[in-house]
Design a protein around this nucleic acid. Structure first.
Lengths: 224, 224
DNA sequence: ACCTGAACACCGTTCAAGT
DNA sequence: ACCTGAACACCGTTCAAGT
């Protein structure tokens, strides 16, 4: 077997293979690198070839978002309290999204545009309805909660959409330096928290606290 | 006085006037319409003229984000409980951002990149420190809270980044129809909440509940 | 100091044409 | 059914040149 580069290993052109290539590209080089022309290159094909399989670039982005949603493995509805189940469900969504921070934002506007996304949304809405939220309240809170999970990922300190490890650490060092150089009299709290603002010391506790905040918050606005 | 169109009314070229033009353009036609070339047109000037006043497009976006932060009027530190003050502070940020939903997302990654943004962040961090959050916890929770305010705006149901009123209402009607057409057996809760998922019935209560959720959530993760 | 003209290396997309 | 070639209307940005 001859050595093959990643491009030549691409399977036959199809909607699925196009989405896969785009997702991998985004994971490696960021969403900005995802270009009709670049994805076509990965398949050794002209840009226009893609248009046989997808309507336009937006449909490609739809496909990526759908991929993330279909990675969510919803827990079985159990006998636990609704807020325990809610935490589990949000956690599984988080687990699906965390490996793909560069494309996470795509899911925010596309939750109701695919079967996979609808399934996740319906599940969360169901839990909220079981906690006496009205149809309207469940809709607003539910979609906000899912978007907030995305925000947790995209706003994680130290995630500057930078991809390769060295560049990222270099950027974090720079950010720390900048923040530490700030006037402690003008920005006492920011300069005191400089390191933590530049990069997340412990990802797991960051995400755990984020989930706790959202679930506690939801309980706080529970009707009745 | 002769009638003048909006373009001819533009003042002399400067960093500030460029940012103003870009912000107005984004408010009218969305962030995608903000282009070096379009902003230059508004000033009756060639695209390259802008590069005398700004380094590149990213600096222009920085300027827009800074504008939003400088619209925030932070409340005086009062004798209220920290969580009451937190709610007030988040609310003033929300008030500053709500008129500019199309550019709200720009502030998420630029909070610590301008004096105005740093001032807001420092204020929130201070409140959290007063509630026994550690430097690290305050950093993570504080920046997440501010980002969550943005998310509240950008994920408001019915905000499809669409600008003119008729097009937007047409889009909402379409969205409602699509969601209502969904199989009630597969997606019982989504179809029951179809209308509320497509558009926000009462913006003020939506935002009030969002703020409540975040403040309750923060209290829920308060140390000790 | 401030702006222009021409050019470069990119985009997404259409449309007629090939097989 | 599936892909190509050429073209169009856009981008951001550089660089030498003008005033």
């Amino acid at each position: 077997m001859a050595k093959r580069n990643e491009a030549s290993v691409r399977e036959k052109l199809s909607r699925e293979s196009i989405v896969s290539a785009a997702l991998e590209l985004a994971d490696r080089e960021g969403l900005g690198a995802v270009t009709i022309r670049r994805v076509a290159q990965d398949h050794h094909v002209t840009p226009m070839a893609l248009y046989w399989h997808i309507k336009d670039k937006d449909e490609l982005l739809d496909g990526i978002a759908e991929r993330l949603f279909s990675d969510v493995v919803l827990p079985d509805t159990s006998k636990s309290d609704w807020h325990v189940q809610l935490r589990e469900s949000l956690d599984t969504f988080l687990t699906a999204v965390r490996p793909h921070p560069a494309v996470a934002e795509l899911t925010m506007t596309r939750m109701l545009a695919s079967d996979a996304g609808l399934t996740v949304a319906d599940h969360v809405l169901g839990l909220l309805r079981s906690a006496r939220f009205s149809e309207e309240q469940a809709a607003e809170v539910g979609s906000y909660l899912l978007c907030s999970i995305i925000t947790l990922v995209t706003s994680e300190p130290g995630r500057g959409h930078l991809l390769d490890k060295e560049t990222r650490e270099e950027a974090i060092r720079g950010k720390k330096a900048t923040l530490r150089a700030l006037s402690p009299s003008r920005y006492p709290y920011v300069s005191a928290s400089a390191d933590a603002l530049a990069s997340c010391a412990d990802e797991d506790s960051y995400y755990a606290r984020g989930l706790d905040l959202l679930v506690h918050g939801t309980r706080g606005v529970q009707p009745k």
